[in-house]
């Protein structure tokens, strides 16, 4: 099938985030909806779809994380040693 590509995002249950499910090619948005409904919803497996022209999507795949980013994350901290020391100082360490 020729025609522009539409990416399809589906929501499985209300309140859940939409996830990418696949794509359809279709002559226009109306056809895309009709066909995506069938492809991604005919078993009642979706409560909602988002149908987005592929050219409207701007992908970002390159990340310049050359240096340590751990200071922003939980796994960047190890408090074990200091916690032990603080407990000992306070006399609250489990004996």
């Amino acid at each position: 099938m020729n025609g522009p590509v539409f990416e399809v995002f589906r929501q499985e249950r209300r309140g859940q985030p939409f996830e990418h499910a696949g794509s359809v090619t279709a002559p226009d948005a109306e056809f895309a909806e009709a066909w995506a409904r069938e492809q991604y919803g005919r078993r009642g497996e979706s409560v909602a779809l988002w149908i987005v022209p592929r050219e409207a999507i701007r992908p970002v795949t390159e990340w310049a994380d050359e240096f340590d980013l751990k200071y922003r994350r939980v796994d960047g901290y190890s408090i074990k040693t200091r916690l032990k020391e603080a407990r000992e100082r306070a006399g609250t360490a489990a004996s």
């Binding site: 901290y77 408090i79 200091r82 916690l83 020391e85 603080a86 100082r89 306070a90």
Partner: peptide, 8 residues
């Protein structure tokens, strides 16, 4: 972590 550094 900041607090632990200060209390020790």
């Amino acid at each position: 972590d900041v607090v632990l550094a200060l209390v020790t």
